[in-house]
Nucleic acid binder design. Structure first.
Length: 435
DNA sequence: AGACATGATTATCG
DNA sequence: CGATAATCATGTCT
């Protein structure tokens, strides 16, 4: 009769050993067997894991497939993703927003300004030729110089673009590759779309840092090129003889007021065909007049001869043009058109007379006349603009320092009659012209 | 090579 | 903002 319980007991014991289970624990209450059971449990799992690696690929695949097809899989997967996102991603997620790198922006701006990264501008020597043509012919000298520069620049540009494209392509390829990989892996481990996105942005950042290096070296190359070619800004090409003559002609025929207007400068520049890059032609004319004024004033004696020469020339061409010139005071031929006509111009008559009387020194009538004419021309212009008149101006312009007032400045209509005139003549002129 | 000429740049001023 | 004066840097002449 005792057998049964014992048997059952033993049975239970065997059962316990073979299949450790909860009922057993509950039955046993406290006991050393609890810890041992867990250890065995883990060992069992490890054993299973170890055997998995021994399984064949097919087997593993099948298992994976089974796992994927499990009805609870999506839900579990989502939970895992969520947990992962909360733990890992949120930590690094804070520094996600990338502020636009100022250095990168600088580089971009520079490349854009240099025409490297901007829209295509015709490319190389073609652009140079076009520029030369646009600037009005005869710019061959400087365009030849610049075509080299432009050619090199476009070379840089081309390299830059191909490299950039290469990087772009590599970046895209790599991105797709990684994305595919992640997508594939996302079937077996929790990878959320957000994480993929993050990976992609990391890849892009890496590649853009490479791009920045490219941009930087491109910038450096451009800078070097610049310094070698254009940036020799002070590199000066003398104007050709014709240009200087035209400018001098204008200068000496407007000696009373050698300040050409913007339009006049433009026209002079066009006439002189001065087109050197870096500055506008009219700015070059401004430079020329600035230099000329200051240098003339500094050493009038030195320029005397030149002044006489140009005065004579204007006189000659004036007489050649004879009697009926138009009023047009072309900068290139300030004399030919205006002077002859102005001699018998009603308004300038008095002026001329008074000048003659004052100027009764060494110079010949024709010369003086021509010169005075242009003075008058200038003056009339000035007068009409300001309504004022500065005396002494007309009297002494051409060949003597008197054209420059005591302050060392050119006496012009903007500084009216306060200047003491050397003679009485202008007084009458004043009243006359002011009418 | 050095002096001078000359176009361009810069600082300053009104 | 334009003119001037000083200066720079290169071109040209001797």
């Amino acid at each position: 009769m005792d057998e049964q319980p014992r048997l059952m007991h033993s049975h239970a014991g065997v059962g316990m050993a073979g299949h450790p289970g909860l009922p057993q624990h509950m039955q046993e209450g406290t006991g050393g067997t609890d810890g041992d059971g867990r250890k065995q449990d883990i060992g069992d799992i490890l054993q299973q894991i170890m055997t998995i690696t021994d399984q064949s690929l097919d087997e593993a695949q099948a298992r994976k497939h089974a796992l994927n097809c499990h009805r609870m899989k999506p839900a579990l997967f989502n939970v895992l993703c969520e947990i992962k996102e909360k733990t890992v991603l949120s930590i690094r997620g804070a520094q996600e927003e990338e502020p636009p790198d100022p250095q990168l922006m600088r580089l971009d701006n520079m490349l854009l300004a240099e025409g490297v990264s901007g829209p295509e501008k015709g490319g190389g020597s073609a652009a140079a030729a076009a520029a030369a043509a646009a600037s009005g012919g005869a710019g061959a000298d400087n365009s030849a110089e610049h075509s080299d520069y432009r050619a090199k620049l476009s070379q840089i540009r081309q390299i830059y673009h191909t490299e950039l494209e290469k990087y772009e392509q590599a970046c895209n390829e790599f991105t797709t590759h990684v994305m595919n990989l992640l997508r594939e892996q996302s079937r077996t481990r929790p990878i959320s779309p957000k994480e993929i996105e993050r990976m992609v942005s990391i890849i892009h950042r890496k590649f853009s840092s490479i791009q920045m290096q490219l941009k930087q070296s491109t910038c450096e190359a451009v800078m070097i090129l610049r310094s070698r070619f254009l940036d020799a800004r002070r590199k000066r090409r003398n104007f050709n003889k014709q240009a200087t003559e035209i400018l001098n002609e204008y200068f000496y025929s407007h000696l009373s007021n050698p300040y050409p207007s913007e339009e006049a400068k433009e026209e002079l520049a066009k006439k002189c065909s001065i087109t050197v890059a870096q500055v506008t032609p009219s700015f070059q004319v401004s430079n020329w007049f600035g230099n000329k004024r200051i240098r003339y004033k500094k050493n009038i004696g030195k320029f005397q001869e030149e002044a006489n020469m140009y005065a004579a020339r204007t006189a000659v061409s004036a007489t050649n043009a004879s009697a009926h010139g138009s009023q047009a005071n072309s900068p290139s031929t300030p004399n030919s058109a205006g002077s002859a006509g102005s001699f018998n111009m009603s308004n300038s008559g008095d002026l001329f007379m008074s000048v003659q009387s004052m100027n009764g020194d060494s110079y010949q009538g024709a010369q003086v006349g021509a010169n005075v004419q242009s003075q008058v021309d200038t003056l009339r212009h000035v007068i009409s603009q300001t309504g004022g008149y500065s005396d002494g101006l007309t009297a002494s312009q051409m060949y003597s320092p008197q054209g420059i007032n005591a302050n060392g400045g050119w006496q012009d209509a903007t500084t009216p009659s306060s200047v003491t005139s050397p003679t009485e003549g202008p007084g009458s002129v004043h009243s006359d012209t002011s009418n």
